[in-house]
Nucleic acid binder design. Structure first.
Length: 496
RNA sequence: UCCCCAGUAGCUCAGUUGGUUAGAGCGGGUGACUGUUAAUCACUAGGUCGGCAGUUCGAGUCUGUCCUGGGGAGCCA
């Protein structure tokens, strides 16, 4: 068995290529490998022998006979400083040639730092170069400010920066908090299908899934494409929402949620849209719109509290360098009750606003971005839940009010990000649902299974969708949604 | 898809009313110095000024067009 192997199976002590693996061998029986987060945590005793592995941020040489190497491994915001003495056998041959991005393995003694700027550092007895940077002149990640636009072009290397490693940790903590929130409350995580045959949910344009030969499409007698010859013997697409599927599990498991990738083939070129993103969709049984608003509020507050608690260093960075209000607004969000109001009241507020709008606020029209911004950023300066929208502007599955003018829909609007959650109480009455589908000219046959849920033990239920990247964007203050997902997919771009 | 803005060194940018060999900082290399920490100092290498076409004696600079990126809008999460 190997004391040392990384994901690619590289082994220390094997090979001696110039830009390959170093000859240096570390005695792993003595040195215990730890993540940098732990080394910096204060849990380790001073004088402990440790080994850290990671990538070089910077190297500074001192002619007093040593070099400072800043090493990061993703585990924490801070890098650890390794003090490499000139006595190391590979000091001039390797250590002094280290540049940003080199992969190293450093063994030594954990000591209190003699310099300012960090509490602990490693007095190295071994510095093993695992992987060189072959052409330091062109290594894109330098210890300086880079534009996010540039870093998007090197999406495979940007997690080596402070910003993107912090985003990555926050994203992870938020995702874990989401699962924990639901698990603690008895919700079940339902993995709804990625590939779907229903093409008329009205949630937007869909990506086609097909194994047909595009240069030689089979045609039927009418001259149309014969999808019966396709892989699934029908037209199929990537999902735009797991909601309809998860409703089935809601009406048996009671409280459920989906959390998975979602795809929209819309030509949306904004800082808030992705063609591939992750969506959280809880669905609760025996519940109405107020229950749903309660859930949305408790949910968001839980996530924010978890991130503030678990990522203090990363949030401090975002506050300092990205969005000065990053921490304050999460605290405020967590403490104050959400403002709840009817769509009708929202329209009244907008009509009475001193501010001029480019688009009119009129009952029956959807709220424009400028309206949402006014409500959350100017009028309330708080998250706002707008409820009960006009029937005409919402989807067929939303529950119709008694006067039929409105449906039980809600949007959660957040300052600086706009709509972060959209949801509704579902129409549980079979006759009403069928009538709505007829009015909208939907094919009831393809929704047969969905209608059956109203036939066999139907109950009032409700659910919402939360764009996970929008949430991470709000938490971190990262203005462009392309910078909170590892490899963004947008119109005209699917690199990496 | 629509409206606006931008594209100059590996990166971040400057470049005047069109005018000689296009500049700086960071990063790279070499050297000096230093418990340094976006270190500092000196020297050095590095550019088809996004592509194409045009106006002009002369274009990084003006015009057209295409490409790429950004901001805003629509659609939405």
């Amino acid at each position: 068995m190997s004391h040392y192997s990384n994901d690619r199976g590289v082994r220390a002590g094997e090979g001696a290529l110039l830009f390959g693996v170093s000859r240096t061998k570390i005695n792993y029986r003595i040195m215990s490998f730890i993540r940098i987060k732990k080394a910096l945590s204060g849990e380790m005793g001073i004088g402990t022998q440790v080994t850290v592995r990671g990538w070089v941020r910077t190297r500074r040489d001192s002619k007093a006979g040593f070099s400072f190497i800043n090493v990061h491994d993703g585990s924490s915001f801070d890098a650890i400083q390794v003090v490499a003495p000139a006595e190391l056998h590979n000091y001039s041959s390797e250590v002094q040639k280290l540049t940003a991005g080199c992969a190293v393995e450093c063994a030594g003694t954990l000591v209190e730092s003699a310099g300012r700027g960090q509490q602990y550092e490693i007095q190295a007895s071994e510095v093993n170069v695992v992987g060189w940077v072959e052409d330091p002149d062109t290594y894109p990640i330098q210890p300086k400010r880079h534009s996010f636009e540039f870093l998007r072009e090197v999406a495979h290397l940007r997690p080596r920066t402070n910003t993107f490693s912090a985003v990555t940790r926050v994203r992870h903590v938020a995702a874990q908090a989401i699962h924990r929130f639901f698990h603690e409350r008895g919700y079940f995580w339902i993995n709804t299908p990625i590939i779907t045959a229903s093409d008329a949910e009205g949630a937007g344009d869909m990506f086609r899934v097909s194994t047909l030969d595009l240069s030689n499409l089979p045609l039927d007698n009418a001259g149309k494409i014969d999808f019966s010859q396709d892989f699934f013997a029908r037209e199929t697409f990537l999902t735009v929402s797991g909601q309809l599927n998860v409703e089935g599990y809601c009406l048996s498991m009671s409280n459920v949620y989906t959390f998975g990738p979602t795809f929209r083939a819309e030509n949306s070129n904004t800082s808030r849209h992705l063609a591939e993103f992750w969506m959280v969709e809880p669905e609760i049984a025996f519940a109405d719109l107020d229950d749903l608003a309660d859930l949305a509020e408790a949910f968001l507050k839980y996530i924010f509290a978890a991130v503030l608690e678990e990522c203090p260093d990363d949030m401090a960075f975002f506050e300092q360098r990205i969005e000065p209000e990053a921490i304050n607004r999460l605290r405020k969000f967590s403490e104050a009750p959400f403002i709840r109001l009817d769509y009708e009241e929202a329209i009244e507020i907008l009509k009475n606003a001193s501010q001029k709008f480019k688009y009119p606020a009129e009952w029956g029209l959807d709220l424009q971005t400028e309206h949402e911004r006014y409500l959350t950023e100017q009028h309330f300066n708080a998250p706002v839940v707008v409820m009960n929208y006009p029937t005409e502007i919402k989807a067929f599955y939303m529950r119709l009010s008694d006067d039929e003018r409105t449906v039980a829909a809600l949007d959660v609007l957040a300052p600086g990000i706009g709509e972060i959650i959209g949801g509704a109480q579902r129409e549980e009455r079979l006759d009403v649902l069928e009538r709505r589908m007829d009015e909208l000219d939907l094919d009831k046959e393809s929704y047969k299974w969905y209608l059956e849920l109203r036939k066999y033990g139907t109950v009032p239920h409700a659910g919402f969708g939360l764009g996970f990247e929008r949430l991470v964007s709000y938490i971190t203050g990262m203005a462009n949604i392309r910078d909170v997902i590892p490899y963004p997919r947008v119109p005209g771009r699917a690199d990496f």
